[in-house]
Amino acid sequence: MMHESNIIKYYVRRLVLAGLVILAVSWIIAPFIISMLYAFTSPDDYYDPKLIIPLHYTLRHIQTLLALGVDKAIMNSIIVALMTILISFALGLPAGYAFAKYVFPGRDALRLLIIGLRMFPIMVIAIPLVTLYMRLGLDDTLLGVALAHTAMALPFVIIITSSIFAGVPKELEEAALVFGLDRKGAFLRITMPLALPGLTAAAIFTFIMSWNEVFIASVLTLTNRTLPAFILTSAMAAPDFIKFAAGFIMVVPAMVFVFIARRYLITMWGITLR
C-alpha cells in the first residue's frame, strides 16, 4: 500500500530526473540544431530579427564553400585521419599488448612517461616541428600532418589498447597455444577478434581527434589544408551563415563515421569487452 505523499514524492522525483535529462541532452543538441538550421538559411531570413526559425532555405552557402575547395579539404582530412589511425595503431597496438600481457622492468615508469608526454603543450613544439619538417621535406604534406597527429594520439591509443588487451583473459590465449597455435596465431585468431569492439572505440577516438585538430594542421600546411585548417583560414572572414555551413560540413562526416563504428562498439559475439 502506497501512502499519498509517497506517490507525490515519486512523481516529483521522476519529473526532476526527466528535467535534468532534457537539460543535458539539449546542452549538446541545441548548438548542433542551430548550426544545421542556419547553414541552409537564406541571408535575408538570417538577418531578419523577427524570425527565429527561418522560412527560406538555400544550398548556396555550401556551394560557396565547395567553390573555395572544401571538398578537397574534406578528402585531406579523411586521408590524414585514416593515416593517423593506421600509424598510431601500428605503433600503439604492440605497445599496448606488451603493457597488458608482459611484466618487464620499468613498465610502470614507461606507462607514466607516455601519459606525461601527452601533457606536453603542442604549441611549444610547433615551430621546431616546422623547421624539422622543412628539412625532411615533410612540410605541407598530408603524411607530415598525420605523423604529428599520431604523436598526439599515440599515448591514448597505447593506454586504451593495453586496457582492452588486459580485458581478454590470459587463459583464452593459452588455450590457443596448447591447441596448436603459436603466439602470433593466438593473437590474430583469438585476442584480436575479442578485442575488436574496444579497438574500434580507440579508432573512433583517434579519428575524431585528428578530424578536429586545427592548430598543428594550420601550422604545418599551406596548400594541403585539412578541413579545420581550411575553415579557419578561409571561412572565418566570411559572413556568419557561411561559418555555420562550414561547421555543418565539419560535423557531418564525423557523425557518419561514429554512427557506422558505433555498431561494432557496443556488442560483438554477444559479449561486451570494455
Binding site: 583473459p169 587463459e171 583464452l172 593459452e174 588455450a175 590457443a176 583469438i190 577478434p193 575479442l194 560483438m268 559475439w269 554477444g270 559479449i271
Partner: peptide, 9 residues
Amino acid sequence: FQSYAIWPH
C-alpha cells in the same frame, strides 16, 4: 583450464 577458457567468439 580452471576457467574453461572457451573462446567466446
